[in-house]
Amino acid sequence: MAAAAASAAFVLVACVPIEPEADSSTSPEVQAPAITRGAASELDPVGADAAKAQEVNLWMREMSRWSAPDSYWGTVAEQSADELQRLADSYPVAESAVPAELSAAAGAITAGKLELGARDYEAAAITLEAAPTALNGVYEQLVMDAEAVEADTGWRLTLGDDLMTTGTGQDNARVERWIDGDTMETSTGEIVRLIGIDTPEMSQTCSQAEEALAAVQAMAPEGATITLRSAWTHEPTDKYGRSLRYVELADGTDVGYSLLLSDLAEARYDSRDGYRWHLREKAYRDTGGDPGFDAACAFAATGLILLEDDDRYNDDGRERSDRMSLIERTLAQSGAGLGDMVVDARATHETRDREAARKAANSSAPSDWSFDFPDSLCPTRWC
């Protein structure tokens, strides 16, 4: 998908020319600043934000599994209406129109079944039509609620058992050298750019760039073993060929997160400023750090694709649409199912009427083998 995005003519890319690689050795007088270490485990799906997102996630999954009744027989309609009402009562997003719309649809199904029982088919058809009408409005509201929950919690819903996980894979490597505070070279020659943060380029006029470099060199010095964790929402490399990774230490420290907590980096290049969403985005942003970089500090081109509003190049928006399509299909099928229910009721009643008429005819017809014996001749066991 990243390749398709990069090839589109109107997709914008940061046009600042990348600076020549600067000498990454810090000045002798620059000491590593005080570092607040942040553990990668703090960014895993735990806590109030993850619990809230998971509550909504599981509700959406149940909604995607609901089915409209398509049969008049038995209690299919009643069970479907009861389930819809339960979903309305348990909806976990406050101040949403979803519960009222679901309740209206459940009520229409219940009332329509009663009218079908009374054989008022025309009235039932009108009543049942109110259900898909209400459900059509539910889908758009659900999408808006899902977007709001994802923005508020920082997690992405899957409509599966769990929220989205940290990444698609990880590799171990050793530090060869740090180029600056957010870019390193590994012992295999791979250049790695940290996801979701930005530090100034090395220059003699930006002391904060040297401080950031000194901090990462202190946390992960040359030869240190590190874990490079990929984020599935990101392209694996930028247009300069640098691998995009979270960098974690053997003790579980997230290097980028630690720089943010220490006011040595800015949280950037995520869905809040026009780039791709990544799983640790909200946690990075919520650090609230303000490094207050000097005006003399310079930043190189990102190498990342700046997303347009066109959803074809917005992986996050497109993937959300794909996930929510499970619910969309469920709701879209409700109209056809309820229409089948009216047809089924007519057929059921006609069948019952024919059966009743047949039984009535059989009960009134004389028996072929009966005889009219005089009382004096009638055997007791027959008469």
Rank of each mutant, 00 (worst) to 15 (best):
M1Y: 11
M1K: 10
S7D: 14
A8G: 05
P17S: 06
A34Q: 14
R37L: 03
R37F: 02
A40Y: 07
G47R: 07
A48S: 15
A50H: 05
Q54F: 09
W59L: 00
R61L: 10
R65W: 12
W66F: 12
D70C: 09
Y72N: 06
W73Y: 09
V76C: 00
Q79N: 13
Q79T: 14
D82S: 13
D82I: 07
L87R: 05
S90P: 00
S90A: 11
S90Q: 11
A97N: 10
L102Q: 06
S103K: 15
A108N: 09
A111S: 12
A111R: 12
K113G: 01
T127V: 09
T133H: 09
L135P: 04
E147S: 12
R156Q: 13
T158F: 05
D162H: 14
T166E: 14
G167E: 04
N172H: 14
E176F: 08
E176R: 15
G181H: 03
E185R: 15
T186F: 00
E190N: 06
E190K: 14
V192H: 02
V192T: 02
L194D: 01
G196A: 08
Q204H: 13
C206Q: 03
S207K: 13
Q208A: 08
E210H: 14
A214H: 09
A224V: 02
T227N: 07
T227H: 13
S230T: 15
W232D: 14
T233P: 03
H234L: 14
R242C: 04
S243A: 14
R245W: 00
T253P: 07
T253K: 03
G256E: 03
Y257M: 01
L264Q: 06
A267F: 05
R272S: 15
D273M: 06
K282Y: 04
K282N: 07
K282W: 03
A283K: 07
A283I: 04
G288Y: 03
G289S: 15
A296H: 10
A296E: 15
C297H: 08
T302D: 09
L304N: 06
E308F: 00
E308V: 10
D315K: 04
G317H: 10
R318W: 08
R318F: 11
R320W: 03
I327E: 01
S334K: 01
L338G: 07
V342P: 04
T348Q: 09
D353V: 02
D353W: 05
E355A: 14
E355H: 07
A357T: 05
A360Y: 07
S367M: 08
D372L: 10
P379I: 12
T380W: 11
T380N: 10
